[in-house]
Design a protein around this nucleic acid. Structure first.
Lengths: 153, 153
DNA sequence: AGCGCTTAATTCGTGGCACGAACTAAGCGT
DNA sequence: ACGCTTAGTTCGTGCCACGAATTAAGCGCT
């Protein structure tokens, strides 16, 4: 490990601390939208399409029983809705309500804006490089689709 | 348009998803050491030196009242100890117990190992570049000292 | 048809976490 | 001595996560 002055940071510390940083930004943005981080995460996942409970558990890395509560609370706030799955009477599809979709939109945009501001002092080429390297890290480690691309299509 | 099979990812998504990834690794490592993520974090901070409650709140970004509970639970597990501050009868210094120090050591080392394994498929130069760029991001954004350097002790 | 096995989700109980408001006690300044 | 600030705790509330047990529906097999 190259130890230099206090300026240089190891890749481990850089990853952990950037995670801490992003988390704080995410939680703060959620709070300002009247959401908890978890509920915000749920809304973001559901922006793409409705999900079943089990599917959500896999995506968010939560136990089924944890999901029931999270969806309950978010539903109580009027942001998501449980719909019966037309093809399987046991299953449920969780979908955004109109209000939930609007809130998700705003929260997502604002959170992107703030996360985008974190590397503000990197120039375009550096941001590109960072995105590419970090992108490979997440791809290599099978991260579920927790936070979609800004403009992928 | 010109994008091939391998997904290009934006810097925002890369940051958010790597944060999610690191978090999961951290929580998993903590769990295997019989810790919660928060208690693990607390131990890591205290590895450097004892802290006062207020100081801990600032470092971890928690309200005072949140800290009382966290320290309570961690103390109940025999990992930290409240010592009276010799210079201020109101204040308390939270320090690792012998067991806490040993556990912190193991948890810290193992967590570093696992986080270090995340960019396993990057070569040395790429890891260096990633560390440098991400390091600038965290430095530019005033992240508190939540997780020390690998060998700054 | 009926019998089991699996799957989807909920319920229940437990514990950790985070917060603000109210409080206690010690230090400090005048 | 008086008031103000500072360090920490207590209390009540709500969210979050989990495993074990449960209910209900689908599926396969005879």
């Amino acid at each position: 490990m190259g130890k230099q002055g206090d300026e240089r940071i190891g890749v481990v510390a850089a990853l952990v601390r950037s995670a801490f940083l992003v988390n704080a930004v995410y939680a703060e943005s959620a709070r300002e939208h009247g959401l908890t981080a978890q509920q915000g995460q749920l809304l973001c996942v559901l922006m793409a399409r409705p999900y079943g409970m089990g599917e959500l558990g896999a995506t968010l890395g939560l136990a089924k029983s944890s999901l029931t509560g999270l969806v309950d609370r978010t539903e109580r706030n009027g942001l998501v809705r449980r719909e019966p799955d037309p093809e399987d009477l046991r299953a449920v599809r969780v979908a955004l309500t109109r209000r939930g979709a609007a809130l998700a939109e705003g929260f997502y945009a604002e959170t992107c804006r703030r996360v985008d501001a974190l590397p503000a002092r990197l120039d375009d080429a550096e941001r590109e490089t960072l995105a590419a390297l970090l992108g490979r890290v997440v791809m290599d480690n099978a991260v579920p689709e927790v936070f979609g691309e800004p403009d992928t299509r």
